[in-house]
Design a binder for these strands. Structure first.
Lengths: 279, 279
DNA sequence: CCTTGACCTTATACCAAATATAGGGTTTAT
DNA sequence: ATAAACCCTATATTTGGTATAAGGTCAAGG
């Protein structure tokens, strides 16, 4: 019987010598024979079977520890269980990745929208598709407070997201909403912030739909409430001038950008939007 | 302006204190203010914006180093590139996982097939669906050699797999093939081993299709060539006795099991199969 | 028999992205 | 005043390896 040196074994199995030594040390794959004097490791070609299984299980996503436990069990047939478990794990991973992908696509679209957006302060009429949002009621009128409070509320929103098991990738596209009845009374009041979710997101009590329609919009960046109020007034005045009819809630949509300012303050692209009907 | 202790900051952002200290040390997020005497870290609530971005980019799969580079660039707008890159990465991951999933399903099916298989040596007639295999010609007649040589050939097959960019998960379901013309001449000769791939696998010159049809099959486990030959003879004799007509290649399908034997030798479930027609 | 180069050994350090722990100092509320 | 809660630094651990150094061994050729 001819034995293989660690280098030969490594080459045959596409693994590094170092890795084989590691497997030896943790007891995952001991060489068939070790020279007492030199410490040289010698492997039997048939040990490739075990190494195959190790690499196979590793591919399935198991840790070396798990693999060792599994192989130490010497329990034939348990491999099926492992396979089932790993399949479910993979399914979960795929779902997660798909979710992430969607969120990224959303973010890409948002950013593109903003880079090709009209100049700051120009009012445009846009047709916007139906959108789904996940609302969070923070209990206070955010316009009564400053950016600090807004940050705290964002943290609360995030807790909310976590409860809904949403990936954090959605967190870069948030907004606030002033309900139509408040707007009609001239009361600039909002106790709700939200984030946009995918259109095929399962609708539950937290999810609300913003219907498609015609919106009067105005863009600006670098967020502050006084700036928002200024542009909101501009937008409302324009709507009044043109005798449009407001038919829904005021929305302030924000896309968070890289925070690069001295105090690392939040920098955002903002798009205010009010659904209207031409009279 | 009220500042946050590291614990408050950590709690607000669902991150550990340790992680925040780490981020400080690597320069990813320095506290707004550090007490000179006590070394206590104090954060500004607005730094949540930067932390959000860090966590967002982390979610996208970027390393802390990459994130730091990105944020240090202070180049607004590069986020789009990052998003595109990460989207492609996710697409690749999803594809890979789907591949793995399929291979696992195949393995599960194989194992189930064997646990519910007839007793060793019993000949059964089965209808088997169309299957795709990836063939490798090893140049020698494997039946002229022993298990050691077979292991070497398996290594070559694996090199072959790697060239075809197949995930290693397929490697647990291999087989060998004796062509009909050899069988007809009574020549038990095989220089081809293969592995099963998914049905929707893209067909190229290495891929071969085993057509669906009726097969005479015999099951056994613990592989050795002499055992295979014994059962192959049994199978052939039975076919002759029953006056079936052999209409295609002899296939020896193996499912590798956990290697648990003293020398860690390969243990396999074997299913011999010969396509036949009733006269 | 000697040398050379390829190969082997152990030991240690490193990577990412944290977590855990020890040992000691500080704040805060009662 | 004092205890609980909190903070600090420094070090070790985790996972699955890779990299390197310093030194020992093997096989082939002269």
């Amino acid at each position: 019987m001819d034995l293989l040196s660690i280098g030969e074994m490594a080459e045959l199995n596409n693994i590094s010598r170092q890795a084989l030594r590691l497997y030896d040390r943790i007891g995952l794959l001991a060489p068939y024979y070790v020279d007492e004097n030199t410490g040289y490791r010698y492997y039997d070609i048939r040990q490739c079977a075990r190494l195959d299984m190790i690499q196979y299980m590793k591919e399935l996503g198991m840790s070396l520890k798990q693999i060792k436990q599994q192989l130490d069990l010497k329990d034939i047939g348990v491999i099926q269980e492992v396979l089932e478990r790993q399949k479910n794990l993979i399914d979960k991973n795929i779902e997660e990745l798909k979710h992430k992908r969607k969120a990224i696509c959303r973010a890409i679209k948002s950013y593109n929208g903003y880079t090709t957006s009209p100049r700051e302060g120009v009012i445009v009429i846009e047709h916007l598709p139906q959108r789904k949002i996940l609302c969070y009621n923070c209990g206070i009128n955010i316009y009564d407070y400053g950016i600090d409070t807004y940050e705290y509320i964002l943290r609360e929103l995030r807790e909310h997201i976590k409860l809904n098991e949403l990936p954090m990738v959605y967190f870069c596209n948030v907004g606030s909403i002033v309900r139509k009845q408040m707007l009609d009374k001239g009361n600039f009041f909002s106790n709700e912030i939200f984030l946009f979710v995918d259109d095929d997101f399962e609708t539950n009590e937290d999810i609300e739909i913003i219907p498609s329609g015609t919106f009067a919009c105005i863009y600006f960046d670098s967020f502050s409430f006084s700036k928002e109020k200024k542009y909101a007034r501009l937008l409302m005045d324009n709507i009044k001038e043109n005798k449009y009819k407001i038919i829904g809630d005021y929305i302030c949509e924000a896309v968070t950008e890289l925070p690069i300012f001295p105090q690392n303050e939040r920098n955002m692209f903002i798009k205010l939007q009010i659904p209207i009907k031409f009279r």
